[in-house]
Simulated scan of single mutants.
Amino acid sequence: MKKMPNINPESQDVAELQAMVKLLMSEKSEWKQERQSLLEQLKLAFDRQFAKRSEALKPYNESQGDLFNEVECEAAKEEVVEATTITTTKKRGKRKPLPKTLPREVIELDLDEHDKQCSCCNHPLHKIGEDRSEKLEFTPAVLKVLEYVRPKYACRQCEKTQNSSTIIQKPAPISIISKSFATESLLANIILGKYQYAMPLYRQES
């Protein structure tokens, strides 16, 4: 900064006053430049400390957007895991028939005579087959098989004139345990032997 020349303020010399004004104007311009430089330095310091990184300040390029979309799609494809569903079919064990050596009592659950007529045309029904199921009955010191026979009936006239024919038969007796051949007397004896006489189930099974 230039030093102020030794000028007497009370001097009335025009030349001296003009020189003083020029000097003051020059100093003012230098102050403005110095102030502007300091402001720019301060702004740059703030930008370095608080502004976003230089990568984020770069101008946006449309091709970069497409590139990011492609990268996201590829990443999404890699994250997809193919799910393989494995279906296992469990073979249901077929129950063995009860021994033929046991005494048997065949109980036939047949339709009544008035039920052996077709409900459509009132023609007599004819037997087309039957279902058989076995239950194990227990009496003290005696085991016997109750074999239920349920004849099936169908109408010949309906078979000739219609596409389908209704099969009629008497319903099976209700079991105390679903799909079991044990009757009430057998279950009662098993419970009695287990809890009254402390006989293990494997001994009762043998």
Rank of each mutant, 00 (worst) to 15 (best):
M1E: 03
N8R: 05
S11P: 12
L17P: 09
K22R: 12
M25G: 07
E27L: 03
K28I: 13
S29V: 12
S29W: 11
E30D: 12
W31I: 13
Q33M: 13
E34F: 05
S37K: 12
L39N: 08
L39T: 15
L39S: 10
Q41K: 05
L42E: 06
L42S: 06
L44A: 06
F46C: 13
D47C: 08
Q49G: 00
S54I: 15
E55T: 14
E55W: 10
E55M: 04
A56G: 02
A56S: 14
Y60K: 14
Y60D: 11
N61L: 14
N61K: 13
E62A: 15
Q64S: 13
E78G: 11
V81Q: 10
T85E: 08
T87Q: 03
K90G: 05
K91V: 14
R92K: 12
P99E: 00
P99R: 00
P99G: 01
L102N: 02
P103I: 08
E105D: 12
E105S: 03
E108S: 01
L111F: 04
L111E: 05
D112N: 09
E113S: 11
K116E: 13
Q117N: 07
S119M: 02
C121A: 03
H123D: 15
P124A: 13
H126T: 10
E130F: 07
R132H: 11
R132C: 07
R132V: 03
P140N: 12
P140C: 02
V142H: 08
V142E: 12
V142A: 14
L146R: 10
Y148T: 10
Y148I: 09
P151I: 05
Y153R: 01
Y153K: 04
A154I: 01
C155R: 00
C155V: 01
Q157H: 14
C158A: 06
C158Q: 05
K160F: 07
Q162W: 15
S164G: 01
T166Y: 00
T166C: 00
I167C: 04
Q169D: 04
P171R: 03
A172E: 04
P173Q: 05
I174G: 04
S175G: 10
I176P: 07
I176A: 04
I177S: 00
K179I: 10
A188M: 05
N189Y: 14
N189L: 08
L192G: 06
K194P: 08
A198W: 00
L201H: 06
Q204C: 01
